[in-house]
Computed example of a mutant assay.
Amino acid sequence: MADLEQLNANDHAGLRLGDLPGRRPHFVQIVASEFAAAAAVCPIFLTKNADTGQFYAGAMFGFEPGENLLDATEGGARLFQPLDLERQGFFIGPEGEVLVDPAHPRFSSGRGAALFEGDGQPTQAARRVQQALGRLQAGVAETDAFIQSLLASKLVEPIDIDLSFDDGRSLSLGGLYTVSLDSLGELEDAAALALFRAGQLQLAYAMAGSLKQLSRLAALRNDRLAA
């Protein structure tokens, strides 16, 4: 377990918030408030936590570990930066305080944005991290409630993905789940209205609609192979 310290200007004025080393993960947990932005660029799936067996939502950036197909698009601009990556190296403590792991790799280069101004006030970079932590903390409960509503209404279905690429390789992806639009269309009016009132119907359609990004990711992979 990392040695976490409460973030403060005295002890952490010298920390520099560098980029995350290496490629971003190919699948990253996201929360409900991120669905709209994520669905515009990549597929969103449910999968199960290997340790707890509980469902969580994630955004897919590539088809296998170490592959991130969005990093090089549009001149390298990050089209969608998940909160869970934005806050890497930082945590929320039991009293709501911000904790930092000074040994985290994103601080190792000694380059990047400072966390504190000369007068000890947090910089814009530090405030971004604080906002990401706050949105994550609020979003986990909201997302869990959404997933439980889907399960209660029997709207979750497994999806098998089989892909073939220009280099002759084939990939089969398992352990992924999505929203069943057929079951959604068969919901009784009261159940559908309850999902709508809770803001969950929009999330369900965002998740289902994001599946069209699978073909976009596959095209980006073929483009990379051709290059």
Rank of each mutant, 00 (worst) to 15 (best):
F27L: 14
F61N: 01
A206P: 00
A38S: 10
Q130W: 10
G110Y: 05
L85A: 07
G174I: 12
A194G: 09
C42Y: 01
A77M: 14
A152I: 14
R221Y: 12
A57R: 01
F165Y: 11
A208C: 11
P105V: 02
A2T: 10
Q200C: 03
S109T: 14
L17K: 08
L211P: 00
G175A: 10
H12Q: 09
V41W: 00
L150F: 09
Q130L: 11
R221C: 07
F55E: 06
G209R: 01
T52I: 07
E95K: 12
S183A: 15
Q131L: 11
F91D: 08
A219I: 04
D19G: 06
P25F: 03
L195M: 15
A13Y: 13
P158M: 09
S109V: 08
G112E: 05
D167N: 15
F107N: 02
E34A: 04
A126I: 03
Q200K: 07
L46H: 00
E5H: 13
G110A: 10
Q202P: 00
G14W: 09
L79W: 07
G89V: 06
G18N: 03
L173H: 02
P43T: 01
C42A: 15
F27C: 09
A132M: 04
L176I: 13
M207D: 00
R78A: 03
A2K: 14
L217R: 01
E64D: 08
V179H: 10
G22N: 06
R78V: 12
F55I: 02
Q200E: 15
G174D: 13
F80M: 08
L83W: 05
A113D: 13
L163C: 05
F107W: 10
S170I: 07
D71N: 06
G185D: 02
A132Y: 01
Q121E: 15
M1T: 05
A50C: 03
R16N: 06
A32W: 03
G168F: 10
T73Q: 15
L4M: 06
A36F: 12
R127G: 08
E157I: 13
G89Y: 07
D189L: 13
I161Q: 10
E34H: 01
G120R: 08
A2Y: 08
Q81V: 01
R169C: 11
D84W: 00
L225M: 07
L46P: 00
D119Q: 05
S210F: 06
A152V: 13
A226F: 10
I161A: 11
L187I: 08
S149H: 08
E74F: 13
A194I: 11
A103D: 13
D144M: 05
I147D: 02
L155I: 09
A208L: 10
V129L: 09
A125Y: 05
R135C: 03
V140K: 01
L4H: 04
L155R: 00
A50V: 15
G139P: 02
P25Q: 05
R23Q: 07
F61C: 02
E188T: 05
R78L: 10
R224M: 15
